[in-house]
C-alpha cells in the first residue's frame, strides 16, 4: 500500500469508527422498513419468535451486542469488531483472488515455455 492510499484507508476507517461509536447512541430503535411492513401486514410473524428466528443459526453478537458486556459499550465494541471483521474478509477475499490470478498466470507462462 503506497502512502497516499494509506491516507484514504486511515481516513475511511476513522469515519467508520466514528459512525460505529455514535451508532448505539443515535441510531433509531424503530423497526426498519421491512420490520415496519411486517408489523402492518403480518403482525403474527413478528410476534411468533420461533418463526422469525427458527434457530438455523445463532449469531454470536446478535442484534449488534456483546451480551457479556451489554449496554452501549457492548454495542460499540460489537460494531468496532464487525468493522474489522468486514475489512479482514475483504482483504482475505482479495488475497485469495490475487493468488489464484498469480497461479493462473504462472500456468500460462509454463505452458508457453513448454511449447517453446
Amino acid at each position: 500500500m503506497n502512502r497516499s492510499t494509506k491516507g484514504v484507508v486511515i481516513g475511511g476507517v476513522a469515519v467508520a469508527l466514528i459512525i460505529a461509536i455514535l451508532s448505539p447512541y443515535i441510531a433509531s430503535t424503530n423497526p426498519d422498513g421491512l420490520g415496519a411492513t411486517a408489523e402492518h401486514l403480518n403482525p403474527a410473524l413478528m410476534k411468533d419468535n420461533d418463526f422469525v428466528n427458527p434457530g438455523y443459526w445463532h449469531a454470536p453478537f446478535n442484534n449488534y451486542e456483546i451480551w457479556q458486556i451489554g449496554g452501549k459499550l457492548g454495542g460499540i465494541l460489537a460494531l468496532v469488531l464487525g468493522l474489522f471483521i468486514v475489512m479482514g474478509v475483504a482483504l482475505g477475499v482479495s488475497e485469495i483472488i490475487k493468488r489464484k490470478k498469480r497461479s493462473e498466470e504462472a500456468k500460462i507462462i509454463d505452458a508457453k515455455r513448454s511449447d517453446a
Binding site: G12, V15, A16, I19, S28, V86, A90
Partner: peptide, 30 residues
C-alpha cells in the same frame, strides 16, 4: 494493489453505516 484497500474500507464503512438506522416518518427507520 491500488483499489483493494479502497474496496475493503468501503465495505467497512458500509457495515458501519448499515448499523445506524435513521428515523423516518410513520414509525419506521432505515
Amino acid at each position: 494493489e491500488k483499489n483493494i484497500p479502497l474496496m475493503a474500507v468501503l465495505a467497512a464503512g458500509i457495515f458501519a453505516i448499515m448499523s445506524m438506522n435513521i428515523p423516518i416518518p410513520f414509525g419506521s427507520s432505515g
